[in-house]
């Protein structure tokens, strides 16, 4: 566990959130930051809700299921948005930039924290791959459902 005050944690989370929002077009950023209704702003909500959990995970290494879910939710969204694979998961590395501003270079925890960020990025990449694989699967199931009845009728006719 790395000792950082709750206030500093919030500041780190806010900085990371804002950097991540900056990966979106400028005209949309403010809305995603300001709109509080989770149903009117699903992407902003996933980020605002998820990032503090991810910060806890990095600083306190809680290994919590909630943090995994939050990371998955963010990646699930970014996997279908207008990002390359690199940019979809790259938001995790933006945390390194915040940490470097927050902690002096000779801080003994710095290397360890950066290792955790790398771990999280790799997990994010796993989620990203799973999401893209899922998209192929759902396309196949949709195509099957589309003519499912006709196929049943033909199979039955062939069986007769």
């Amino acid at each position: 566990m790395v000792k950082i005050s709750a206030e500093r944690k919030r500041a780190i989370a806010q900085a990371w959130l804002e950097m991540t929002l900056c990966t979106y077009p400028s005209q949309s950023m403010q809305f995603m930051l300001d709109e509080r209704d989770r149903f009117r702003n699903p992407v902003g909500h996933a980020l605002k809700n998820g990032i503090p959990l991810l910060i806890n995970e990095i600083l306190d290494e809680t290994d919590s299921e909630r943090a995994r879910q939050a990371l998955e939710e963010i990646v699930r969204i970014r996997a279908v948005q207008n990002f390359s694979a690199r940019d979809a998961v790259g938001f995790v590395f933006l945390l390194k930039r915040t940490l470097s501003q927050e902690l002096p270079d000779d801080n003994k925890d710095r290397l360890e924290l950066e290792r955790r960020v790398d771990e999280m990025a790799l997990t994010a990449f796993d989620f990203y791959s799973q999401c893209r694989a899922k998209i192929s699967d759902i396309q196949v199931s949709e195509a099957r459902r589309r003519v499912a009845q006709l196929q049943r009728i033909y199979s039955e006719a062939e069986g007769r």
Binding site: M19, T20, C22, T23, Y24, P25, S26, M29, R86, D87, G90, F91, F93, L94, K96, R97, A121
Partner: peptide, 8 residues
């Protein structure tokens, strides 16, 4: 990897 441009 740590130098992604995040300027909108």
């Amino acid at each position: 990897l740590v130098q992604i441009s995040y300027d909108p």
